[in-house]
Design a protein around this nucleic acid. Structure first.
Length: 817
DNA sequence: CCATATCGGGG
DNA sequence: GTGTACGATATGG
């Protein structure tokens, strides 16, 4: 027997000799790839019999024949478990193969003596990982022997696998991939029809771009091959030679890998990239995914959109926007429409496209590298593989965290809802947070308080969970949830499963926050990623409880959470008003007030006072002081709209919330004007100067001083031109493109400028290329773009719309004389 | 107005 | 693979 130590990265199983064999692909402590095999884990699920029913004999004798295969229960084991707050005598039902579990459980779940069948849909590999405490990226020791099994990496058959002390695996070997395809302007992307032109790779000390035509190039990383089939073979060779743990790309689940697969199939090139020689698997069901056995495919776009979206400012998740914000780097500025032209034209002037291709791969690599600490921490908290974490949303991450913990806490997990139940749940809604509408206006000396992790701390502090709701042990004695029309309470004697889990996440995070300050830069990054992941997960619990497809769904619990939320925020408002602060706005967990002559110190003391009376982990925080802020009305009425304000910090940073300043169908000039107006009003408190600024822009538009590129409006066709009934300007432009023989379809980006004239707008919408510099319609841009963007702000300040439009003061005319 | 359909990312 | 996304926005009835 030999001993090895290794880090699992990707886990699968395979049926061999009628036995499921777990394959743990990973790296050994001395950094070699390995596959650890384990064949002693049995598939099982739970059956909960009705009270006093003894079904062990029936289960033992159970047989079903599917095709010519006889399927039986291999053995049963009585177990004492907890299920939704109650103790139950359950039966662990074992099967020979994972595939037998849904068959057996499906057959027996309707038996009269069976209350329910549980955990019958937990994937075998995940079941194995939970039951054996396997967490990817952490160190394990295995005892066993190397076998002669044919894999691309050494195979080690383990008799025993156990966690051992040691550093975590932090530097997976990563390779980023990006392809460019032949796609003429305004044509759709068609993998069946159009070839891949080039494939770019970026890794550690590795930059390559392969192209299948020959041309002169000054770039040393460009390599030529003779056909697209060769190119695809090269793709396989590079991956096999580089031996990455992770292959990453941007939207590679949905684009690069499916495209490569389609082209490979066309040429009958086998993409047996898996470490077990299995082929790249592209599954085109609901969401397209691409998977390679033993190598983690990380689609970094998916992770960013699903998990990081809330922490980013951008509301577009294309590579350029995301890289700009996260890396402060951009995509190369080229016109991709020209690529296909250059390709047809003897592959001349290709260098810029090769650079573009490599840069995209590089950006994906850098994004994946930057997010690796966060991904790794989510892996360690949930125990899922990187591949799985990459493809799950918050509710699934919470669910798998709970599933793993449930097993540790001897809980049987509730089932996923049936379709009927799903429909019923979807129809239910809950009362949300409390909002104190702001009175529109400009305010000075603003202080903002907010509850730190309001909902998580409520769930923990008030013991909110399914098993603790309306318990008989406390009954009417317990403190009631502040709901008007319902009598609800949570146990005050024993802590529930859900609140225990969330409390654990919150306290773990608090401990990290305490020690994080005096760490080296490297340690800080890891700890910061960990505390952030803990926060992300804790913050998802409330949403999870109210999520219709959740196993631990409980709208009652979600309702109790928001009820307490409303209660506590109202408390702050009332107490602040009693202490003579002026409350101007409040939403969910934050309160904005003005000092009204008092000092910042008074506000700090107020927070302390409130905190003394809060239960458990709940805490009100002093978020900040702002010398000035403006709250704006959504409609033109007297009441402010929620979540629409702009604040300026002491340092002069303007924080804009809730204004559609970056809308797709807005021209640059409208966006710019809005931003500048906020800046002038908040920084200089000079409304007249802000007004003058707008008048100047209006004036510049009238005199055509605003350059053409600031009046271009970007839109995207949503469907086929013929399918539009009402033809907006962008549809009219698309129609004209089509008439010219250019194939525009859904997804085509249409840029246009509204030009002068007396015709209806859609007939005056032109392509920017067709418009001369000063040929745009000033009135359209003034009245439909710039004025609407700033109108609300000026409304609040007591200006009327027509004042914005009045001509600039006569000073301007002096030039005429 | 509410219900249903499509889109996102990618070239 | 003991599986199947999701939330926003645009259009249609």
């Amino acid at each position: 027997m030999e001993k090895i130590r290794f880090y699992p990265l990707d886990v699968t199983y395979k049926v061999m000799n009628e036995k499921p064999v777990i394959h743990l692909f990973g790296r050994t402590l001395d950094n070699r790839q390995i596959c650890v095999l384990y064949d002693s884990f049995e598939p099982y699920f739970y059956a909960i019999p009705k009270q006093n029913a003894d079904i062990t004999n029936e289960l033992k004798n159970f047989r079903v024949t599917i095709g010519d295969e006889a399927i039986a229960i291999t053995r049963v084991e009585p177990v004492k478990k907890s299920y939704l707050g109650k103790n139950v005598n359950a039966i662990k039902v074992f099967a020979k193969l994972p595939g037998h579990v849904p068959i057996i459980s499906g057959e027996i779940k309707n038996w009269n003596d069976i209350e329910s069948v549980n955990e019958n849909d937990i994937l075998f590999v995940r079941r194995f990982m939970i039951d054996n405490g396997i967490i990817p990226l952490t160190l394990y020791g295995a005892e066993g022997d190397f076998t002669g099994m044919q894999l691309k990496v050494p195979a080690f058959k383990a008799e025993k696998i156990e966690a051992v002390e040691g550093e975590n695996f932090v530097k997976p070997r990563m390779l980023a991939v990006d392809i460019e395809t032949y796609t003429p302007s305004y044509k759709e992307i068609e993998p069946e029809k159009n070839p891949i032109i080039m494939i770019g790779f970026y890794g550690e000390n590795f930059s390559k771009v392969f192209v299948w035509k020959r041309f002169k190039t000054a770039l040393d990383y460009v390599e030529h091959v003779d056909s697209e089939a060769e190119l695809i073979k090269k793709f396989k060779d590079v991956i096999e030679a580089y031996k990455p743990d992770i292959i990453t790309g941007y939207f590679s689940d949905g684009f690069d890998f499916p495209y490569i697969k389609t082209r490979a199939d066309k040429y009958k090139v086998k993409l047996d990239l898996g470490l077990d020689f299995s082929e790249l698997r592209v599954k085109k069901n609901m969401a397209v995914t691409a998977q390679i056995t033993g190598i983690i495919h990380l689609d970094i776009f998916k992770f960013i959109r699903k998990i990081m979206a809330g922490t980013l400012d951008t509301d577009k998740y294309n590579l350029n926007a995301v890289a700009s914000e996260m890396l402060d780097e951009k995509k190369n500025d080229i016109n991709l429409d020209e690529l296909s032209k250059a390709w047809d034209n003897n592959a001349e002037n290709m260098d810029a496209f090769c650079e573009y291709n490599l840069n995209d791969a590089k950006l994906s690599y850098k994004l994946a590298d930057k997010l690796m600490p966060t991904i790794s921490e989510i892996v360690k908290i949930t125990g899922l593989t990187i591949y799985d974490v990459n493809r799950m949303g918050f509710s699934q991450l919470v669910e798998w965290y709970l599933l793993r913990q449930a097993s540790q806490f001897n809980q049987i997990a509730p089932n996923k809802p049936s379709n009927d139940e799903l429909m019923r749940r979807r129809l239910r809604s809950l009362k949300g947070a409390f909002v104190f509408e702001p009175k529109p206006g400009l305010y000075d000396n603003i202080v903002v308080f907010d509850y730190r992790s309001l909902y998580p701390t409520i769930i923990s502090s008030h013991n909110i969970g399914i098993g603790t709701m309306n318990c008989s042990c406390c009954g009417e004695e317990a403190k009631k949830v502040p709901l008007e029309d319902e009598n609800m309470w949570f146990c005050e004697k024993r802590k529930g499963f859900i609140p225990t889990m969330i409390e654990d996440l919150i306290t773990r995070r608090m401990r990290i926050k305490e020690i994080i300050k005096d760490q080296s830069e490297e340690k800080f990054a890891v700890l910061d990623a960990r505390q952030n992941s803990l926060k992300l997960l804790a913050n998802s619990f409330y949403g999870y409880l109210g999520f219709y497809a959740a196993r631990w769904y409980s709208l009652e619990c979600a309702q109790a959470t928001t009820a307490y939320g409303r209660y506590y925020i109202r408390q702050v408002i009332e107490k602040a008003q009693k202490d003579d602060f002026k409350v101007i706005y409040s939403d969910t967990d934050s309160v904005f007030l003005t000092l009204d002559g008092k000092k910042e110190q008074d506000a700090l003391r107020f927070v302390e006072k409130v905190n003394q009376e809060l239960p458990g982990l709940m805490e009100l925080e002093f978020e900040g002081f702002y010398p000035s802020g403006i709250f704006v009305s959504a409609k033109m009425g007297d009441f402010g709209a929620k979540k629409r304000y702009a604040l300026i910090s002491r340092e002069g940073a303007v924080k804009i919330k809730g204004f559609e300043s970056v809308r797709r169908n807005t021209s640059l000039i409208a966006k710019e004007t809005q931003e500048k107006v906020f800046e002038i009003i908040l920084k200089e408190h000079d409304n007249d100067r802000a007004l003058k600024y707008v008048k100047q822009v209006v004036d510049d538009l009238r005199c055509k001083k605003v350059p053409l590129d600031k009046v271009i409006i970007n839109t995207q066709l949503q469907r086929d031109i013929s399918d539009y009934d009402s033809k907006g300007p962008h549809v009219a432009v698309a129609q004209r493109l089509k008439n010219r023989g250019i194939n525009v379809g859904p997804g085509s980006a249409i840029r246009f400028v509204v030009t002068q004239g007396s015709d209806i707008i859609r007939n005056r919408a032109k392509l920017p290329e067709e418009v001369k510099e000063k040929d745009y319609d000033s009135d359209y841009y003034i009245n439909n773009q710039v004025i609407p963007a700033v109108e609300r702000v000026f409304n609040v300040l007591g200006y009327r719309k027509d004042e914005l439009l009045e001509a600039k003061e006569q000073t301007k005319l002096e030039g005429f004389f």
